[in-house]
Simulated scan of single mutants.
Amino acid sequence: MKVLVIFCHPVETSFHATLHQDILTSLKAAGHEVDDFDLYAENFNPVLSREERLGYHEVPSNRIPVEPYIQRLLAAEALVFCFPTWCFGLPAMLKGFFDRLLMPGIAFDISDPKNVRPALTHIQKISAVVTYGRPRWMALYMGDPPRKVITRYLKVLTGAGTKVTYHAQYHMNVVTPEKLGKFREKVKKAMLHF
């Protein structure tokens, strides 16, 4: 399976960087063809410009500014996201990925505005590996926007049959090394069986 891994963390020595490498290694060991999209390393520009917003609904010219990224998204059969939760939301860089790439003609078809249809129907599986600084109950209290984006919004864009998994480590501010090790093993196992 062709898997697009979307990694979002600016620090190469972070726990997330370790998770990112675990994901890549495990997916490749399982025989998948992996496209590693490291948003920071590739200097992805997350800002939706004025011109892009004005042309947002102009299919197919709306894709011109981000065409190389769109080609990678359209070539994928599965998506794996690896990111931290900041301020109970997606990191700005990852939010910009969604803002700039998940547009009409790519992620959804709005030729009939009353009947918007998913366009990423070639995506069969989605997974996310996510960390939170606070406990699970606090994420639930805040509505857990990252979980909803991955498990609900992306499912709307890919179709009801898409299998979605979400792997979260909560309370990173106080988690023990043993728990981090267990989470890493859980992620490796999930990617080996992806």
Rank of each mutant, 00 (worst) to 15 (best):
M1K: 08
F7G: 10
C8H: 05
V11R: 11
T13M: 08
T13P: 03
H16P: 01
T18W: 04
L19C: 12
H20W: 11
A41Q: 11
P46K: 07
E51Q: 13
Y56K: 13
Y56M: 11
N62Y: 04
R63D: 03
V66D: 10
I70R: 03
A76M: 01
E77V: 08
A78V: 04
V80K: 02
P84Y: 01
C87P: 00
F88H: 11
A92K: 06
M93K: 14
K95F: 07
K95S: 13
G96R: 06
P104S: 07
F108K: 10
S111W: 01
S111L: 04
D112A: 08
R117A: 10
A119P: 00
T121G: 03
K125E: 09
V130T: 13
M138E: 13
L140E: 13
Y141Q: 13
Y141L: 14
G143K: 05
D144H: 06
P146K: 07
R147D: 08
L154C: 08
L154P: 09
L157V: 06
T158F: 00
T162W: 02
T162C: 12
K163H: 08
K163F: 07
V164E: 00
T165I: 06
Q169G: 10
F183Y: 14
R184D: 03
E185G: 15
L192S: 13
